[in-house]
Design a protein around this nucleic acid. Structure first.
Length: 277
DNA sequence: CGCATTTCCTGGAGGC
DNA sequence: TGCCTCCAGGAAATGC
């Protein structure tokens, strides 16, 4: 499931492969996943140059000439692939965009369709779903600002998962960060002291950076832009390891449902605080 | 406000 | 082998 490191990996590859090129013919097989500018992508994209590609929260943003942006939300199973035009087209490929003067094209596929595409142009007539504002980027957060984010009476796991509170974290990296920082996922965010808050931010940054180095975590559908798997799943210490020994202390990893999501934690490394509800 | 529940959707896993 | 049910989960809406 693409979170920050996976989106970052894809965005970097897309920048390398697309920046400076011009977009060409568009093939769109589902219009209901496209939001933003009401005009067809086939009218909006061809002829525009790719200026740069970057990540914001869990989204991949392609910045185009004419102040246009093509934003991809990958949801659970979204993939952005740079393929040769003649490569076999896999099922659930919803969008194909030719890269002019090359034999390549950008493809977006998303079997479960939790993802989406936004094309934003200056003053465009907006249709479809909106993109809610996202919170600060965790890799750019200072301890002071993180402290501010935590000043709410909410379970820390739910808060870290909330894209409007802090951007880019999903189930995997929340659980891994909380474990590394020895914080129980049900701890009330505003009960963390300064030392625990700093420890948690350091853990989040360390784990995200390490995951980016490993091209993200492939548990099922996630692929890099060239179709390869990430490898950070081999470094998970708690995620999807219920019943297995903690890699730090050997205690048996527990699974619970918090904020509607499977949550994995070590009962010894992350003792439940009195404030847990 | 917080938190649980439901919805969207498909493929994979497990039961029989 | 084959069919059925269940379940995963990011984001948003709904209900309490």
């Amino acid at each position: 499931m693409p979170e920050l490191p996976e989106a970052e990996t894809i965005a970097r590859a897309l920048h390398k492969g697309l920046a400076g090129y011009t977009l060409g013919e568009v093939g769109l097989t589902r219009t209901d996943i496209v939001h933003g500018d009401s005009r067809p992508l086939g009218d909006l994209l061809p002829g525009r140059h790719v200026e740069r590609v970057y990540r914001r929260a869990k989204q991949v943003v392609i910045e185009l000439s004419g102040d246009a942006q093509l934003i991809f939300r990958l949801g659970m199973t979204g993939q952005l692939l740079i393929c040769r035009v003649r490569d076999a087209v896999e099922p659930h490929t919803h969008l194909r965009v030719r890269v002019m003067r090359t034999r390549r094209e950008l493809r977006f596929r998303d079997p479960r369709r939790f993802g989406g595409i936004w094309c934003i142009t200056p003053g465009c007539e907006f249709v479809g779903k909106r993109i809610l504002p996202t919170g600060p980027e965790p890799l750019e957060l200072t301890p002071k600002r993180f402290r501010f984010v935590l000043q709410r009476s909410r379970q820390i796991k739910a808060l870290l998962m909330d894209q409007q509170a802090i951007a880019g974290l999903g189930n995997i990296y929340c659980d891994e960060s909380l474990h590394a920082a020895r914080v129980h996922p049900m701890t009330r965010a505003d009960t963390l002291d300064d030392e625990a808050s700093r420890r948690l931010l350091r853990a989040i940054k360390r784990i995200l950076n390490k995951a980016i180095k490993h091209q993200g975590s492939t548990l099922s559908d996630y692929r890099t832009a060239d179709g390869a798997k990430g490898s950070f799943q081999h470094h998970h210490r708690v995620y999807q390891r219920a019943g297995l020994p903690c890699r730090n202390c050997g205690a048996v990893i527990e699974r619970a449902v918090i904020a509607g999501r499977s949550t994995f934690s070590c009962p010894a490394c992350q003792p439940a605080p009195a404030s847990a509800s």
